[in-house]
Design a protein around this nucleic acid. Structure first.
Lengths: 191, 191
DNA sequence: CCTACCGATCGGTAGG
DNA sequence: CCTACCGATCGGTAGG
């Protein structure tokens, strides 16, 4: 009875997954309706009908990846005690995520931060909000440590993009381990 | 007599400057011949004639910015003694450059590293080579310090992208100072 | 450096 | 979800 609605949802999921994969390699602007339709053996209007506009599709792809990031990085760390234990867990999960995002081009959220940092629009706003949320999360935990909050925040925030670049551009597979060690130095925690 | 050749060189310089400015905001793929022609009140073929292809134009823009980076960041530091003095100079100039690149969208080289990290072609190769050169430069100096070369290299490399993101995405104008302080911590140098 | 043009592709819409 | 189509723009070329 509701088979067609289920099918539509499945099609939508498939489109989003493919869009995120393309965006991780070629950027969110590199996601085109025509290419997506061809890759999925659909018509362009069949693709676009699920999202209305290209921007709607970009936002859907970002939202999907943000949900995945929250599930893999943020949620598991919230079981840890506030302050240093939670901070080290957040960082460790972050660096592990960057090494294994499930997308062919690495971390879409890290790439989107650079791609949209000086643009305007909803995509920029969503990306900026995501990273502001992440900063606020780390900042709130840093306040429990007695450390220099702003300086430590800057130094921890640096490690994610560094892991991404070390892996994607330099092929350094040890990057997550180096970042974990660096985070412990910042937080004055013994490895 | 040679006025036309001088004019042509001037036109070429103007095109490259505009292309770099656009690329800093919208990415190197966002540089289109038609937009450049409209902005400069030229014909498309007038623009393209100087570079042959869009890729040629992208490479010319990158080469220009690389030369500027070398002149502002690398060259001034080479007068300092090898090891820690040169490393701190390289880092300081790097962070100051990131805060004032002369381009409206921030650092094109940092953005291009992310935009092209998982693509193929000459643009990718040029960008990868630039960052490999920078890594080799820092690594060579780190070998004079007695510090853990690979770990320190990772931690220093992290600070550039961090400054860029802090400024462009979060509007944190104190980022260069924070990065200078972080670099001194990494290098065990007193501030 | 220009005009004039090429085929391909862009995001999106009409109508079913 | 489809076909068929829109105007705009893409990178690039011919010929001058």
């Amino acid at each position: 009875m509701r088979r067609s609605a289920v099918d539509a949802q499945h099609t939508r999921d498939t489109i989003i997954a493919k869009a995120a994969a393309i965006a991780s390699v070629d950027g969110l602007e590199g996601v085109t309706i025509g290419r997506l339709a061809a890759d999925l053996a659909m018509s362009k209007s069949g693709v676009l009908g699920h999202f209305g506009t290209k921007e709607g599709l970009q936002l859907a792809a970002i939202d999907r990846v943000i949900a995945d990031f929250r599930a893999k990085v943020v949620e598991p760390a919230l079981t840890r005690d506030r302050g240093l234990p939670r901070l080290t867990a957040l960082c460790d999960h972050w660096f592990d995520y960057l090494a294994d995002t499930g997308l062919p081009g690495g971390c879409l959220l890290t790439a989107a931060a650079v791609e949209f940092d000086t643009r305007t629009g909803e995509v920029h706003d969503t990306v900026a909000e995501l990273w502001n949320d992440w900063r606020r999360l780390l900042r709130a935990e840093l306040k429990h440590t007695g450390l220099d909050v702003d300086q430590c925040l800057f130094e921890l925030m640096a490690l994610g993009p560094a892991v991404n670049q070390a892996i994607q551009l330099h092929g350094d597979r040890k990057a997550p381990e180096r970042a974990k060690r660096a985070a412990r130095t910042v937080l004055l925690v013994k490895a």
